[in-house]
Design a protein around this nucleic acid. Structure first.
Lengths: 137, 137
DNA sequence: AATTTTTGCTATAGCCTATAACAAAGTAGG
DNA sequence: CCTACTTTGTTATAGGCTATAGCAAAAATT
């Protein structure tokens, strides 16, 4: 099977690398009973207590409509709670249980990220993050 | 909104970059009426005339079951045809119409890939492909 | 005060992936 | 040769994630 043409495309490599990465991370986070996107939102709420659904959505490029089931899962798992901050918006906060779970989740993610960057040959390593950031930020 | 923690994760940047990239490519390929995955399979069939559904699936990590609707779309669009190579397997070939469309599709993809790599600062540029390949190959 | 925007939500559809099961054809070992 | 195993192509179905349209209430703007 001739695949050289495909493999010379950075876009192809980017997609394959991202798919492999996200699959690996998803498998590790399964042990915590949480999805990758949900964990990402949880991290963001932890760093921004009182933030809102729409603010999280804007930051992660998730439509308002899709935030609804996401936050419901986090709430059903007793990881976050919502408190009205005015008549319309709801502030998001981690529960005590959420803080404990997040510590474990963060440890898993940190280990994952360390292994990920370790797989990149040393001479290319420091270039990965800036190169990727140039593609979307 | 504090996002530094998230943005220091290569895994996060990888996912965001891949999503942005695939969205852009999908939009460009819409003009040709073809999906990204379908175009990828078409490229592979073009470079490996007579290859089979299962071989394409193995190369692109697509389950056999998911190759069925994919190839049906390519066949319905008169881009490929299937010819029995033994009593069980079907060889895949581009049609004349498929060859013509592929030339246009390939031009779109090549332009896209060139612009993608051009967005990466010069000093990081040559590191991107090897770094990404280390993450999945 | 009237208009526009924002927020949170429901409902729904589409894309892509994952699993289980099946029949028919091919392959390998005794 | 015959049996057991594997491969191929397929159907059916479910799940994860995304996208669009529409809605009501609250907030912001003018």
């Amino acid at each position: 099977m001739k695949e050289q043409n495909l493999q010379s495309y950075p876009g192809y490599a980017l997609r394959r690398a991202a798919n492999a990465m996200i699959g690996d991370l998803a498998k590790r986070l399964e042990a915590h009973g949480i999805r990758v996107v949900d964990a990402t939102a949880l991290l963001l709420i932890a760093d921004n207590p009182g933030t809102t659904s729409s603010a999280i959505g804007r930051s992660l490029d998730i439509q308002r409509a899709n935030m609804v089931p996401l936050l419901k899962r986090l709430e059903d798992a007793d990881l976050i709670q919502r408190k009205p901050i005015d008549g319309k918006s709801l502030g998001l906060f981690l529960t005590a249980h959420g803080e404990e779970r997040l510590a474990e989740i963060r440890a898993t993610i940190d280990a994952f990220e360390a292994e990920l960057i370790a797989r990149v040959p040393a001479k290319h390593r420091d270039h990965l993050l800036p190169a990727l950031n140039a593609l979307w930020r």
